[in-house]
Design a protein around this nucleic acid. Sequence first.
DNA 1: TTTTTGGTTCTGCAAGCACAGAACCAAAAA
DNA 2: TTTTTGGTTCTGTGCTTGCAGAACCAAAAA
Lengths: 165, 165
Amino acid sequence: MSPEMDSRTKHIEESGIFFENVGLPRMAGRIFGFLMVSDKQDVSFEELTRALKASKSSISNNVRILINIGFIKAISHSGERKTYYCLSPEVDWVDYLKKRIQNFEHFRKLLENGYELRPDKNDDTSEWLKYGIDFYIWISERLDDLLEEWRQKVEKTKQNSQGKR
Amino acid sequence: MSPEMDSRTKHIEESGIFFENVGLPRMAGRIFGFLMVSDKQDVSFEELTRALKASKSSISNNVRILINIGFIKAISHSGERKTYYCLSPEVDWVDYLKKRIQNFEHFRKLLENGYELRPDKNDDTSEWLKYGIDFYIWISERLDDLLEEWRQKVEKTKQNSQGKR
DNA sequence: TTTTTGGTTCTGCAAGCACAGAACCAAAAA
DNA sequence: TTTTTGGTTCTGTGCTTGCAGAACCAAAAA
């Protein structure tokens, strides 16, 4: 990183690294980061290739990834052929988290399966497994409650702001 | 998979695939799965290489990974040079989850940084960022509460079982 | 019709990674 | 001391993946 790199560029690269850390392409993170700090509301495909100095193929593929995740959205303007992209206003954090929480479920099933297969269910290892299973059952329930709570909170806020109008 | 593969082998391989899906080596998952369903309380290094048909280097590296994560533990028996491994009885699910939750914090910081860098903080994108930031602040707090709740639950159970003795 | 534009899909390459096997090393045994 | 044991670290290989550039394609423009 050159020292005179501006804070936006730095932000974009950091976003890329973060995405990489969670198993997504760096370029997808760069696009996401760029959309965050762009002074425009929506950015064209062509601007992305130019701003991020990336090939069309890379932008094309990574834009699709971001759309699938639900982080960004394609929009078009009448009388124009170009496609523009912006952070998806409809992104559902709850749904997004729910998908990530499914890993817990999967892991719990793995523990349960292991427990079932143990020859002696009264030893330390079995106890350990039981404890882990209990924890995951408990935390999954609680997380569901939490997400429902948030959903209602949002619902209420929406009604409020509608009432104000 | 041959049809006559027994359920333990199947479990071990499934564990391997699961680990792979969350970004860890398949072999680490196999070891974890094997320790789950082994009829022994602890398993030697050599038995792992034999049972999983893997090289010493692979076992060595992946055992270290599992120890670092905190999933398994090395133990030794007096009068013996061999090292044995078992599912770590001290594994702290709470700590484990906390580490995974740190990703949320990191992501929130990314959103906050993006928000700070926006030229116009009154447009839709900024609103979107603010909403996301709020959500992550809220969920982080709630998760901390949850983990604390679980910790206390465990504490209580421990006291109970001690009282019974 | 032919040409241009906007974007997708195909091809090839470079980097990263999990694994095996070999070389290695320290501690115990002989 | 030398030999054996138990395990780690080094080296090479095949597989995967992100990317660029080229080929491609459909729709609009000319």
